[in-house]
Design a binder for these strands. Structure first.
Lengths: 343, 343
DNA sequence: CCAAAACCTGGGAGCGCTCCCAGAACGTTC
DNA sequence: GAACGTTCTGGGAGCGCTCCCAGGTTTTGG
């Protein structure tokens, strides 16, 4: 479809608020009120302004708005560089999509920043310098001081995933504990007796929460929780951890892997050892990435809604910016079990 | 320093240019010159200014710079919404990482926008409204008029992937043609006789270029190029296309899949039909996503460097913004064959 | 019927920076 | 020493908007 977006307007002569005012036969102030949806504007004036805006293709100059007003109309999404490597990419893209979906219609821009080694001070200066109204932090290695610093500086901040070192900073996370517990219970209910787990790094809350949930699920059923190996959210580490587990307990008959991406590696190791999945060893993952359904065999896993994670973070931040009070200090999103063939 | 009670959520006591000037004992103008690296500043003054900046933790107000100056110090990355669904996420994240890497150290912000259905005019108004100095477009469905519109409006624009409907707009792409040709030649060299392909959608250059390259590779070796099925860059479509191919030619002994993500689906179908890979049917993918190495069996594929794609786009845009002339109208990045077990 | 309250409107002072211009301080050359 | 660069410096006029204030017009209430 060749949907014609309007004729290109010359770039230099930018229509200004004043021209809209003249065209609509009102004052600058009134135009400003209309644009900002303020009350106390007659419907006649409002109508005239809207028409003028449409005709002139007016788009307010953000820089001027920011400078004159007290808001930047802009929020930042900060991703730690380690994060961008460690974190599996689909996660990031999903969150981003959610953030954008939630921002739709709001006149708020999203600027993206990645913290770099040694750059932290610049980043903090920038963020606290009034260029943004709030920050969404996607921080992964647990003890990142950034959220704390920003929050202490009075900048509204929401973190993605429970921060280990920033108590008191609002965060949004999937309910990793209960999700993992459900996985454990499922395996127990299916009659598995010797159940191991491949957990994420000890310095990430997501890894620890899933480990805790798994332990709780097993111990409630009086199943041994000693069979633990660790990975770092890469397929390779998953493969190595699986080998480790197999050595610890050759009679292992099920494994809960704290991330699909590691489960892929685990599947390879299992295959290499001649173990059939799920007949010899059942496998349950976590995340429900696209690849979970195309794994061989398709992976039973705990789904987390990453897009919803992004949406919720944004909602929480925008609510705070709107001055809402008594907002929840954290939000946990439910997970859901997705049963395929691997367990 | 008056240590009065700092009222919460009071206006940010932002250090301004003027304060730096006072602290350094020079004028605003001189501080501005130092910040912008202009000549005609004595080293004594420059030194004093740098010290003052460091001591006060000064960070220039971008809004004011934009408003006063002619540049926005900001570039936009526009992703079409369809794109965010169609395009596999790792691709997007990789490009983004490259963009950021290339921007490091430059005082340029990156704002992210997604075009939404019906939103096009707003988007164009915003982008052409002087809020950004240039645009990186990640557009997927071929005939997107956006790049053309932006370029016609005089806004420096670089597109990711050869645009079908925007001749003349600078773009950066992987060398899909030669990559696919290499895959075809490889299969021929390995003695395969009956070679099919699963191509991407006909309205995307990436799909067509890979198809063309494959055809060229086969026809040079006088192998039949009639065995073609189409998918849409999802695993499901890959699985369906593979089934189609198998029906067309039960004696097929190799297939080039125009995207790893579709290859995953193809692998499933092959498995379901009892075909061994690579013994019965060899499979070569394209992209070399992380999942290629964890597929069963690990996928032989053509690697494209998505991060480099992002870097190159950004470099091209920044060069244009810097006023460089006679820049190449397009840039093709080389691909590389990665041999694993599937072929 | 008049005062108070609720609505609507326009004027104008900045927000913090860049950039132009005028001029000072220093050579250099005839 | 006059006449010119060349290097450096400060002053000040905006950039396009928001927000405060003062003043008009209507509605409400006693």
């Amino acid at each position: 479809m060749t949907d014609a977006v309007d004729p290109p307007k010359a770039r230099r002569p930018n229509t200004r608020l004043e021209e809209v005012a003249r065209a609509a036969g009102v004052s600058k102030s009134t135009v400003s009120r209309v644009i900002n949806g303020e009350p106390y504007v007659s419907s006649r004036a409002r109508e005239a302004v809207h028409q003028a805006i449409g005709k002139l293709g007016y788009s307010p100059n953000q820089a001027a708005r920011t400078l004159a007003g007290s808001r930047a109309n802009c929020i930042a999404m900060v991703v730690s560089e380690q994060g961008s490597r460690v974190l599996n990419d689909p996660f990031f893209a999903g969150v981003l999509r959610g953030v954008h979906a939630e921002l739709a219609g709001k006149r708020v821009q999203l600027v993206l920043m990645m913290s770099k080694e040694g750059d932290e001070q610049d980043l903090v200066n920038y963020l606290c310098g009034g260029h943004v109204d709030g920050v969404l932090v996607i921080s992964l290695h647990g003890q990142d001081p950034l959220p704390r610093t920003l929050a202490d500086a009075g900048l509204p901040t929401v973190v993605c995933g429970r921060p280990l070192g920033a108590g008191g900073v609002p965060y949004v996370d999937s309910d990793n504990f209960n999700g993992a517990m459900e996985a454990a219970r499922y395996l127990v209910a299916r009659g598995h007796k010797r159940i191991g787990t491949i957990a994420g790094p000890r310095d990430m809350a997501v890894g620890m929460d899933r480990l805790s949930g798994w332990k709780r699920g097993l111990s409630q059923a009086r199943v041994d929780t000693g069979l633990v190996a660790y990975g770092d959210f890469t397929p390779e580490s998953g493969a190595a951890a699986m080998a480790d587990l197999l050595q610890q307990a050759p009679d292992l008959d099920a494994v809960f892997v704290g991330a699909d991406i590691m489960a892929l590696g685990a599947l390879q190791t299992l295959h290499a050892h001649g173990k059939r999945v799920p007949d010899d060893v059942a496998v349950v993952g976590f995340d429900d990435l696209m690849i979970a359904s195309t794994a061989v065999p398709p992976l039973t896993t705990i789904r987390q809604d990453v897009e919803q994670l992004g949406r919720t973070m944004t909602w929480r931040l925008m609510a705070e910016l709107a001055g809402e009070e008594n907002l929840p200090p954290f939000l946990l999103l439910p997970t859901a079990m997705v049963t395929r063939s691997s367990a």
